[in-house]
Simulated scan of single mutants.
Amino acid sequence: MTISDLKSGELIILECISGSRAYGLDTPSSDTDIKGVFLLPKEDFYGLNYVPQVNNETNDIVYYELRRFVELLSQNNPNILELLNTPEEAILYRHPFLAEIKPEIFLSKLCKDTFGNFALSQIKKAKGLKKKIMNPLDRERKNILAFCFVDYAQGAIPLLKFLEIRKWKQEDCGLVNIPHMKDMYGLYHDADGGYRGIMKDECSNEVALSSIPKDRERIALLYFNKDGYSTYCKEYKEYWEWVERRSEERYQNTLSHGKNYDAKNMMHTFRLLEMAIEIAKEGRVNVRRPEREFLLAIKSGEYEYEELLRMAEVKQVEMEQAFASSILPELPDVERINRLAFELRERFYARK
């Protein structure tokens, strides 16, 4: 099922502008995100064609089937609670029946975890980007030779340096295991090419072992930092996947403010924490943010990363205290929610 199918079949029962434009945090370059709810035809819902979600390729247009929508509301999912509480000016269409799905039916102390954890995830994302910016990886991938070291004089030097000093090729070297010494090998050399080399090819993930005659003299001990190589491979893959899928505009904005962290993630951290505090104290979800100037100041990089972390810790404590004294129920009333979802669907189908 596609978005076109939803529209042509008149299945959409809620459609809203979401994201920065709903929060009141949009700027001239902001995209327009759309979220909504649809109702599957009766035969698809009760048959084998249930579809919980329909979205476009970039996920900036997403529609949830009514059952999935209510399910996520009962879990106090931040994005879905925001959708339910979209400001009137950002609602493109809402079926009158949906007026019965009231926020107070769903709000509970579970929001402390859902909004709080979501906020913390934004900090981790911002920190992850900071690490990638500060530690870029060369496009040319290192091979295992860069993670090998040889005992030399009274210490150790990188294998590549050792080969350079000896004017040897790695293909003319041979390795043998040394029992009881993890990732340690005996290093031998044969200028006539009688060994298998230290690695088979550039893509090798393991060193190559050779059959060495017992009368050959060992040149040195070689250590292969296998754990370090594995970590590097993982980070290399993650880094270049991130480069390929990153928003170039957002990345350039991060570079331009010079703080080396994803300011947009940090902005959402404070938005989520403030919303959680309001939910605990007021029992409502305020999507449009009154602290617009403060949040946009974060987005533009006016604060240092460490300063924001300290401020976020203070807000987190405030959130914990707000929920500790909140009159919200511990969890949503699932039985009531289930009845409501059933009755609404029956009413929708009865009108078809």
Rank of each mutant, 00 (worst) to 15 (best):
R141I: 07
F348P: 06
D138I: 05
N177A: 11
A341I: 01
S247H: 08
P28N: 07
N253L: 09
E100Q: 13
G155V: 04
H189S: 08
I133F: 09
I298W: 03
L308H: 07
F97R: 11
E57N: 13
E291T: 08
V243K: 14
Y229L: 01
R310A: 12
K130W: 03
F69T: 00
E274K: 10
N265Y: 07
A276S: 08
E206R: 15
K127H: 09
I123V: 14
R271N: 05
L129V: 15
Y239H: 09
Y232R: 09
K182R: 11
E302I: 02
D215E: 14
R21Y: 08
V150Q: 03
W168E: 02
G186A: 14
M319L: 14
R271G: 00
R196V: 03
E346I: 05
I3E: 01
R336D: 06
G9W: 09
F149G: 00
Q316H: 03
G174W: 00
L98E: 12
D60V: 01
W240M: 06
T231P: 00
K259I: 00
F348K: 03
E171M: 01
R336E: 11
F342K: 14
M1A: 09
P213V: 00
E343N: 13
Y64H: 13
P329M: 04
M181T: 10
H95W: 02
D60S: 02
I144L: 15
K299A: 11
L340E: 11
R336L: 13
I61C: 12
Y23W: 15
L222C: 09
N225C: 05
D33P: 10
L39I: 15
N286I: 01
